[in-house]
Design a protein around this nucleic acid. Sequence first.
DNA 1: ACCGAATCATTTGGGCCCGAACAGTAGTCG
DNA 2: CGACTACTGTTCGGGCCCAAATGATTCGGT
Lengths: 190, 190
Amino acid sequence: MARSYDDSVPDRHSLAEIEQAMFAHVGDLSVNLPAANAVSTLYRAANAVRSHLTNTVLRGYGLTWTGFVVLWVVWIWDGLETRHAAESAGISKATLTGVVKTLEGQGWITRETSDVDRRLVNLTLTASGAAMMQELYPAFNAAEADVVSCLSTRALTDLTRSLRLMVASLEGTSLERTDSRRHIEPARGA
Amino acid sequence: MARSYDDSVPDRHSLAEIEQAMFAHVGDLSVNLPAANAVSTLYRAANAVRSHLTNTVLRGYGLTWTGFVVLWVVWIWDGLETRHAAESAGISKATLTGVVKTLEGQGWITRETSDVDRRLVNLTLTASGAAMMQELYPAFNAAEADVVSCLSTRALTDLTRSLRLMVASLEGTSLERTDSRRHIEPARGA
DNA sequence: ACCGAATCATTTGGGCCCGAACAGTAGTCG
DNA sequence: CGACTACTGTTCGGGCCCAAATGATTCGGT
């Protein structure tokens, strides 16, 4: 190595160092540290999981995380309309259009406009798409299990419950103001 | 409304319905449901938080989530080299280059190559950038607190600890194979 | 003093991501 | 029937995202 990696400016920051730096900039009183820690760790963990599963499992099939999620919801529900697929996958309809175009070009999925309502578009897995999911999902699920293997059963259920609470409070108050009582869509896997 | 939103195909899926659909496709025995639930809920929660904070706090300043995170780490450490900024922000150096270009164009940040090592580039907040963060961060932190207000103090610390465990086990084994003993960078706010 | 290896930031190319604007389709109500 | 309204999926524009390749710079060893 060209350098020992620990001599220059701050690289490895302890929590105490970060707290001190924060206090120096924002003032000791008015900062909610546990909330800041939780949010940043949450986002970092989600990206770490996504990145890990993508690189270890999905990349071999030429799939992205989002592409896989879309395939998954279409697979599990034996076909889906675009609007439901977008909601279940947790992405916007605009994004879904592009992702489906990619998956369609890869031959995993087909798109056909509905006969009864010509506004709708039905998504269905191709034969090779279904076969691929049947082979891929067990490996993906095993990798999921591996990712959470560092947590006890109790810690895992607590984690999921807390996260679900946050999702419920956020998705209940954010968008979709047209129907005040908004349902909670658990997305894939739950 | 044109339709009652609840009559057509499957939209509101209960957990039991999803489990049943999964079993029908993957086989009852070999699926780790708690792990799948945890991973999907984790990712969905992270995106919900990101989306909420972006729309309620950041959008008013013309900032994206990633742009804000980069500004934050540069702010809190009184300037940073790009490699450290990328790692602290949890994004690749390639992504950072583009984000910094955006922030530079908006006048929040400046870029200048180091004198002692001309490969390095130092990032510093402009005067207006520092002033903006001083005004913005309290609002952002308040929104963070609001997002986790549905959890008890105990649940929040447990959540953060579990997530940190996952991050540690993932970032310790994923990339950066050059230095086998990799440190754990807590990112912003932690 | 040189040369090869390591490290840095950037560019390139392909894909995801969303809000806003859009055109097409369906239901409603006079 | 003919507006009017609501809902559909798509397109557009701008930004984020990363792996791989590139060019510049530095370090270590000879």
